[in-house]
């Protein structure tokens, strides 16, 4: 499975954004991810490629979080804390998403925005494929119920 590195750059950037909540840090981590990825040509085949990219990005984000755990990460991106619950009568999809825990948002982004195969996600977060599928199914159903619509829009 050949991948388009430029396209993956956008996806990894989005992934880093959702994990570190800062676009500049996210872009630094994205570039570091690709530099480290290119140092490992033995993994540039099949699903190993995506798995490696996301694993590097995830580890870098975790390192970044640990490094700044004592400090407050600058947040220029929306997160769950930004939403005042119950203020708005009707929830938009964006608001519904922002209410979700980070892990669930990450899962939705990986699967439905970045189109990462379930097998890669399961390896990345260390659960079985069935668990990933169950969580995705539950999440989308919850979102539909919250929005009161049959389709997310």
């Amino acid at each position: 499975m050949a991948i388009d590195l430029r396209e993956e750059y956008d996806k990894i950037f989005r992934y880093c954004c959702i994990r570190v909540h800062d676009r500049h840090t996210a872009e630094d981590l994205t570039q570091e991810t690709f530099l480290r990825y290119l140092e490992r040509p033995q993994y540039h085949t099949g699903n190993k490629t995506l798995r490696l990219l996301y694993t590097i990005a995830r580890n870098l984000c975790a390192d970044e979080y640990r490094r700044h755990s004592s400090q407050q990460l600058p947040e220029d991106l929306p997160s769950g804390a930004d939403v005042e619950e119950g203020v708005l009568e009707s929830l938009s999809l964006q608001q519904a998403l922002s209410e979700l825990p980070d892990d669930d948002r990450e899962l939705l982004l990986l699967r439905y925005v970045n189109d990462v195969p379930v097998g890669v996600i399961s390896g990345l977060i260390g659960v079985s494929r069935s668990t990933v599928n169950r969580r995705l199914k539950r999440l989308t159903e919850d979102l539909r119920i919250k929005l009161g619509k049959e389709e997310l829009e």
């Binding site: 590195l5 430029r6 750059y9 956008d10 950037f13 989005r14 954004c17 959702i18 676009r23 872009e27 994205t30 570039q31 690709f34 290119l38 991106l77 929306p78 938009s92 999809l93 964006q94 519904a96 998403l97 948002r105 939705l108 982004l109 439905y112 925005v113 989308t140 389709e151 997310l152 829009e153």
Partner: peptide, 29 residues
């Protein structure tokens, strides 16, 4: 999930575009 729903989700995440992508790949090449 339908394609339209995926697009709606992508919009809802409202994530920015990278700023230094072209520069990075130029240097890389």
């Amino acid at each position: 999930m339908k394609k339209t729903e995926k697009q709606a989700l992508a919009r809802a995440f409202d994530l920015p575009d990278p700023e230094r992508k072209d520069e990075f790949f130029r240097e890389l090449s």
